[in-house]
Amino acid sequence: MSTPFYVSPEQQMKDRADFARKGIARGRSVVAVQYADGILFASENPSQALHKVSEIYDRIAFAAVGRYNEFESLRIAGVRLADMRGFSYDRRDVTARSLANAYAQTLGAIFSSGGEKPYEVEIFVGEIGGEAGADQLYRLTYDGQVFDEHRYAVMGGAADVVGAYLEEHYTEGADLATALGVAVAALGHSRNERGETTDREIGVEQLEVAVLDRTRIQTRKFRRLRAQQLASVLGATSA
C-alpha cells in the first residue's frame, strides 16, 4: 500500500507562490505613475491588439502582467462587475476599492484552494478622483494581497530594477510629458550582473501607454496614447 507523501501546508503554499512568481517574472514590467492630471500606465508591449492596460469604468483603469488568458478573464469580470453595479445603482457608485476587493477575494480563493492552479498574474487597479490627492492605486498579487500604492508602482519581470530607477527620478505633480519620460526611461532601465547600467531606448511602437486623465471633458477618463501621440509628447520633453 502506497502512502501519499506528507507535504506541510507551509511547503504547499511556498510551492504555489514560487510557481506563480516564476510565471510573473517571465513577462515585461508595467509601471503606474501618478502625475498632476491623473495616473499614467506604461508597459513595453509590441502587440497592438493584446492589451495589458485597459479601461474598466469612468475613472477606473486596469493593468496586469503575467498570463494573458488569466488576466484577460479578470479584466472582463471587472468590466462586468462595474457595468452591472453602475446600472443597478449609479455611475458614481462604482469604485476601485470594491473592485480591488473583489479581485483580492477571487485571487485569494483560487490561490489557497487545492484544486485550481494559482493565477500567474499581478494587477493594478487605479482610480482618479477630483484632485491628485484623491487618486487611488492598488496593486494586487497572485495570492490576493492588496497593496495601497502611492506616487508610483511597478510589477512584473524587472520590478526591482525599474522601481529603483523610479525611486530616484520620480517627481511629484509632474506634467504628462515628464511623467511619461520617467516611466519610459524606467522601463528601459536595466543592470547587468556586475551592476553596471545597461539602459536601452524603447521605441514608441513597442510601448503601450494609457492614462486616466481628469482634464478630459467626457465622463470616461481613460485614454490610450498611440505611437504618434507618444512620439510628440516624448519629443517635447527631449527638445
Partner: peptide
C-alpha cells in the same frame, strides 16, 4: 455575490460566471 444586480457586498468574490467567457452584450449579462 450571486446577485450582483442587487449589489454584491464589497469583499465578495467575483461570481464564477463573470470569469467564464461569454457574450459581449450587457443586455445578455443582465
Amino acid at each position: 455575490g450571486d446577485l450582483p444586480g442587487s449589489g454584491s457586498l464589497p469583499g465578495a468574490r467575483l461570481p464564477a460566471s463573470y470569469l467564464t467567457p461569454g457574450s459581449s452584450s450587457f443586455v445578455d449579462l443582465l
